[in-house]
Computed example of a mutant assay.
Amino acid sequence: MSEELSRTAKEVNTIVKDTKVQVKGGFGELRLDFILSKLNKDYIIIKDIIIPGSNKTTQIDSIVISIYGIFVIECKNFSGYIYGNDKDKVWTQIVGKTKNTFYNPVRQNYAHIKAIENVIGDKYNIYSIIVFSDKATLKNVTINGNNVIVRNENEILSTISEYKTITIDKEEIKIIRDKIFDCMKTTNQNTREHVRNLRNITEENKCPRCQIGHLIKRKGQYGEFWGCSQYPKCKYTRK
């Protein structure tokens, strides 16, 4: 019984940790929503959407559609020093004496953009914007792509406003918006369902927690389970 209670306690701790991460990320998205709400009526904002990806659903924090182009935004509510290159597989966060790695957000948002292009086509100017909290310092972040921008929250409005060349006419803006809305209608917009879909992956796919390792089949005291190849750095498991 004590072993079972211990296992239950570990599962509860894991759920609590995951919940804290989701809540923390949610605060960042709320701040981003408030910032984007200051854009004028020339910009259409679609936030927190789920659409089909290459082999699973993909969740996008915000899309801003305008006559000046389309901005696909990935929000990272991180603090500390941030290091990374757009070609790297992982980036680094340093908070005090603690060093963490996380999946390259440029790669992550690239997958979001490809999913959007599958819905609206690939003839439009689409810009990838990675937004970090103002508590983060972009210490050494190198970006070589022309349409990729990494900024802190307080720079987002000015960054979007820099684009003043009209590339999409107003009527086409409505068509793009409607295509995205139609796609959303055919895809479950429940975030929990999206997370469940991410967990429902095979061993070729990335670990849904660290986005670095791959799930491999292991044997434990209670039978077979899927575990991250990055263990013990990442302790994600599922039945």
Rank of each mutant, 00 (worst) to 15 (best):
Q22F: 03
I120V: 05
V141G: 13
Q108G: 05
T187Y: 00
Y81M: 03
D169A: 03
N125G: 00
L30N: 09
K76S: 01
H112S: 14
H214P: 07
I201P: 01
Q108A: 13
V21H: 08
V95P: 00
I126C: 03
Y231W: 03
G223A: 08
F132S: 00
D182V: 02
G213D: 03
N40R: 00
Q230L: 05
A136N: 01
S79K: 13
H194K: 05
V141R: 15
M184N: 11
Y124H: 08
N125I: 01
E224H: 14
S158Y: 04
L30G: 08
R31L: 15
G84A: 08
Y81F: 12
G53W: 03
Y222P: 14
D61E: 15
N147T: 01
E172V: 10
T57E: 04
D134F: 11
V16Q: 11
E171M: 11
E204K: 13
E204F: 11
V72R: 07
K41M: 08
V72G: 09
D88V: 02
Q59K: 12
T191A: 13
L215P: 02
H112W: 15
D42K: 04
N77P: 13
D122C: 03
K89S: 08
K217H: 12
T58A: 03
I15D: 12
K239R: 11
I65Y: 05
N104Y: 07
I51C: 02
H194Q: 10
S62I: 10
S158D: 05
L198V: 09
T159K: 12
K206E: 13
V119K: 02
V12D: 06
N118H: 03
S128L: 06
K114I: 13
N55R: 05
G121L: 05
I175P: 00
S79V: 05
N152W: 06
E203G: 09
S2M: 05
P208Y: 12
K233A: 08
K233M: 06
T14Y: 11
F132Q: 02
Q189I: 08
K170D: 09
G213Y: 07
G28H: 12
F34G: 03
G227S: 14
